[in-house]
């Protein structure tokens, strides 16, 4: 296995090749970084038109460091009324749940916790861990378990935002996870349906028609197309510094998680998902994100390598594996 000498990508990843100069193809074709967009007129315009609403933003709030900081940003920098939605996949750590209670209390934010049937979730994650259902590119960005989980979260977020007439949806994506120039976008309902159909068809094929309840009805979405929310990516136009982020949220009572691996601050399943993915495919699912962050100068290469080499507690991996194996 060859490793890029500039970022951390390795040639076990399908899209990666390492040249004779030791650079990967991503580093070799890297373009100069765009300056962060400073114009927030469009965002403020959307906010201004929704000041009369109970909530301006629906935030997918996992309790992790990035979404906790995102919440703080939305509340304190932009002065927004935020409804946080937490999807409890059944594997959130006790500390994470405590962090959610603490941070939402300090920031004066409403929180809704949604939990789908635990046996169904375990069956989904178990089968996803063995599947090759998703596009190769998607599996270079996240584990099959995480892709399954986040697909349910995305559908949930759209559904809640549309029902509640909340104009903006936000996630805690890092700059390494998103590579777009504009922080605010809105997809047409046909595009949303096409995206969702792709993932829904795969999950239904794997899990059965009962899982259709987790996705949006196409007719309903079309009827409500005027209420489709914007997607806002705060780290496209706000600075990302992990040390600053952690200090900032620790100041309001957030506590670092110790039970997870170094790539997650909330989900116990993540450690298992990363372990399985690396075992199956020969690369850590956080490689692409970390490599992007290295190229953007947001993390040193050595730190990124340390993060992906830390698999977390092997006892936790075995424990989660044992739980999931009971749900075929």
């Amino acid at each position: 296995m060859k490793l890029c000498k500039k970022c951390i990508l390795n040639d076990n990843m399908p899209s990666v090749s390492i040249g004779e100069n030791g650079l990967c193809n991503y580093c070799a074709r890297e373009k100069p970084h765009r300056a962060k967009p400073e114009n927030e007129d469009e965002l403020y315009s959307v906010i201004a038109s929704s000041r009369d609403k109970p909530y301006q933003v629906l935030l997918a709030y996992s309790g992790g460091k990035d979404s906790s900081y995102t919440l703080k940003l939305l509340r304190e920098k932009y002065g927004l009324s935020v409804l946080t939605v937490t999807f409890d996949n059944g594997f959130m750590s006790d500390r994470c749940l405590k962090n959610i209670r603490t941070v939402t209390a300090v920031l004066g934010t409403d929180n809704i916790m949604i939990r789908y049937a635990y046996p169904d979730m375990c069956r989904l994650f178990n089968r996803a861990s063995k599947s090759d259902l998703f596009p190769v590119k998607a599996m270079e960005r996240a584990s099959t378990i995480c892709i399954s989980c986040i697909s349910l979260v995305k559908s949930l977020m759209y559904r809640e935002a549309i029902q509640r007439r909340i104009p903006i949806i936000c996630f805690g994506w890092t700059p390494g996870q998103i590579g777009i120039p504009n922080p605010l976008i809105k997809l047409d309902y046909q595009m949303i349906l096409a995206n969702e159909k792709q993932i829904r068809d795969k999950i239904l094929a794997m899990m059965g028609e009962g899982f259709n309840r987790f996705f949006m009805d196409p007719g309903w979405l079309k009827e409500n197309k005027e209420h489709i929310p914007y997607l806002y990516y705060p780290f496209v136009n706000n600075e990302y510094d992990e040390e600053v982020i952690v200090r900032s949220i620790q100041a309001i009572g957030w506590e670092m998680e110790e039970e997870t691996d170094s790539n997650s601050t909330n989900c116990l399943l993540n450690t298992y998902a990363n372990f399985i993915h690396q075992d199956r495919f020969g690369f850590h699912p956080y490689c692409m994100e970390m490599a992007n962050m290295v190229r953007q100068g947001l993390i040193k290469r050595e730190s990124a390598l340390r993060k992906i080499s830390n698999i977390g507690s092997i006892q936790n991996v075995r424990k989660i594996g044992s739980i999931l194996s009971q749900y075929e």
Partner: peptide, 12 residues
Amino acid sequence: MDAGIIDSTGVI
């Protein structure tokens, strides 16, 4: 999309 080559992030 039908061929599973791109997903929602790929669209963006």
